[in-house]
Simulated scan of single mutants.
Amino acid sequence: MFFLLFAFLTFSSSVRIFQKLKREEDINQRYQHEKLNAELMLLRQQVNPHFLFNSLNNIHSLANRKSDLTSEAIMKLSSILRYMLSENPSSEIPVSREIAMIENYIDLQKLWMKNAIKVDLVVENVKENHYIEPFILNPLVENAFKYGALPGIESVISIHLRIIDDWLHVQISNPVLREKLSAAGSMGIGVNNVIRRLELCYPGNYKMENNRIGDMYQINLSMKLKSNELYSN
């Protein structure tokens, strides 16, 4: 009888200890999840001011030159910001919308580059059921313009995007017109922001490399996308 009572008490105590440890583990997991979500939201919120700051600087340059393109640049920027504000910052968006954002950004850049810049944009096999972390590609394009384009100087920026078996492959190439690109840590806030968001949103499902060959700089990014089957047909 004593043995049965002892066994019951031991089992009961073990169950309570297990339940307590499980609750503590669940609380810790929720805390870590909320912590990562908070960091991700902060990273997302950094993108818009960074983009806006650079764009306003360029529009200011147009205004100083009393360029007739100032008004058009403001309207294009307004369109991009309207798109940014319309998106839910906590959810993914169709890849096609991210590409539309990139196209608008390219048009905006060409205005203050006096069309000296040529952009080779190639998009392959992008469908509406492919979804992506919002505004994760544009900082890479911004980086290409930052170091590979100067007003009045002819240059070519190449941007290729294609999807194969739910993997998005991105290759961005630009000439090096600003030597700061070769310095350590020179990729700046925008690209470092992208790298951290890739770590948070696509752990183990992305690969990113950057190389400089002579006077050309290239970023290669591959990432596994999520798909929404509602749009697959």
Rank of each mutant, 00 (worst) to 15 (best):
M101Q: 15
N28D: 10
L5H: 10
Q109H: 05
K35C: 06
G204Y: 06
E39W: 11
A183T: 08
N37F: 09
I189M: 13
G148F: 00
I59G: 03
V119L: 02
V122H: 14
A183M: 12
R30C: 08
L81E: 11
I117A: 12
S14I: 00
L52K: 03
A73D: 10
V15S: 00
G190Y: 05
D120T: 02
F11L: 09
L52R: 06
Y131R: 04
W112L: 02
L230N: 06
A116Y: 12
S227I: 10
Q46W: 04
Q19W: 03
H60C: 01
L21F: 01
M41V: 08
W167E: 15
G204E: 13
P94C: 14
Q46C: 06
H33M: 12
L5C: 08
V141M: 03
N104F: 02
F18H: 07
Y105G: 01
E133C: 13
L77K: 13
S12H: 00
L230D: 09
E34A: 14
E72P: 08
Y231K: 07
I27T: 13
N28I: 10
E199I: 08
T70M: 11
Q109C: 05
V176E: 10
N115R: 01
T10V: 05
C201G: 05
V47C: 01
N138K: 00
K114N: 09
I163F: 00
L198N: 03
S61M: 06
H169Q: 14
E92R: 13
D215F: 02
S86N: 14
S12F: 07
R212K: 14
I132D: 03
V191C: 05
L43C: 07
E209C: 06
R196E: 09
P139F: 04
L150D: 00
E124W: 05
A73R: 12
R65E: 13
D166T: 10
E124H: 13
E209F: 08
R65F: 07
W112C: 01
H130Y: 14
F8A: 12
S55E: 08
A144D: 01
Y206L: 11
N125V: 07
